[in-house]
């Protein structure tokens, strides 16, 4: 097991390194944009010269790696936050993204699983058919359509929620105030519909499979009631694939949803990405790319490893 985990981690860093290298060259090849302000232009050009942005790409790459390793310096923001280190720019946007997604996660995981369990227990009855049909619709409809629906009904028609998330200053200078939470309800809801539906469908599928297994028959024959057998045997086994999925989603929280952040004006990582492209702030773009790549890889590896921890019967890394 330890060997397998280590192997996966080494492999992950190898993949990470390859991707970052590819992206670095592709991003540094892009022509850089200068601001129209002459003085600023001169300042920036001088800085770029000093930072070696005009040297051959391979040399630039060497400098980049050295800076990352020795100073944890991923470059500098030139337009979004002038001369702020890219790492700081990114981390300062992490909290809003994580908060919104975390709230949505806390809401959608229990609801999704409970609905899924209910549907599986009532399989092929009208409750199940109702839930399954609704879930089918909710899984398919893109999340921004919910965003519009939430905005339309809860802001425009009823006026319960603000249209977008408040800025830090409006909400009293902290991300944790009640006012901020109130303004975050709309994106939380918009995010949750799809997640609830997805989780519900997955839970139902897994649970219906375990409910029809032979060990369920055995459990009932032993004299367990239906509820006992379901809770102790079926649910436990169904959780084997469900839990890793939840863990994956949890890590995905860091990445956030670009489109939801755009619609609700959340100053998060996703919005930073869009901004960095629109403003040609390529160091930030690179930083974001590194970040997204890492999150993706991390989620993948954690999901794989968690299978082994959740269910010891699954032998990781064994030959097929």
């Amino acid at each position: 097991m330890t060997k397998y985990v280590l192997k996966r981690i080494v492999l992950m860093f190898f993949t990470f390194f390859v991707i970052v290298t590819m992206c670095f060259f592709l991003i540094r090849m892009l022509p850089r944009e200068l601001p129209t302000d002459k003085n600023l232009q001169r300042v920036i050009l001088a800085r770029w010269e000093a930072l070696g942005y005009f040297k051959p790409l391979i040399v630039q790459y060497g400098i980049y790696l050295r800076n990352v390793v020795t100073q944890w310096d991923f470059g500098t923001s030139w337009y979004i936050q002038f001369r702020e280190p890219a790492w700081n720019v990114l981390t300062s946007r992490l909290l809003p993204t994580v908060l919104v997604n975390l709230y949505s996660f806390i809401l959608s995981v229990p609801v999704g699983i409970l609905l899924g369990i209910y549907a599986a227990i009532k399989k092929n009855k009208w409750q199940d058919q109702f839930i399954s049909t609704t879930v089918m619709v909710f899984v398919s409809v893109p999340s921004y359509v919910y965003a519009f629906l939430v905005q339309y009904f809860l802001y425009f028609k009823l006026g319960w929620l603000p249209l977008t998330v408040y800025s830090l200053a409006d909400a009293g200078g902290s991300w944790w105030t009640g006012k901020m939470f109130h303004s975050m309800i709309a994106p939380i809801l918009a995010l949750s519909f799809g997640q609830i539906a997805g989780l519900c469908r997955f839970t139902r599928a897994e649970l219906t499979e375990t409910l029809t297994s032979d060990y369920m028959l055995l459990a009932r024959t032993k004299g367990l009631t239906r509820a006992q057998a379901t809770a102790r045997h079926a649910l436990k086994n169904a959780m084997v694939p469900i839990l890793p999925m939840i863990i994956g989603t949890f890590i995905g929280i860091l990445g956030g949803s670009m489109i939801i952040e755009q619609i609700f004006a959340i100053p998060g990582v996703g919005q930073l990405y869009i901004k960095s492209i629109n403003l040609f702030d390529y160091d930030i773009f690179m930083m974001d790319t590194v970040f997204y790549t890492f999150i993706g890889l991390l989620a993948g590896i954690v999901i794989d490893i968690s299978y082994g921890f959740i269910d010891p019967r699954i032998r990781m890394g064994s030959k097929k």
Binding site: T15, I19, M22, L26, M29, L30, M258, Y292
Partner: peptide, 19 residues
Amino acid sequence: SDILNDVPFIVVVTLFQIH
């Protein structure tokens, strides 16, 4: 294919668009 698969899709699209 693993390496290609792990490049975030949004980055791929962006790079293709800009280039």
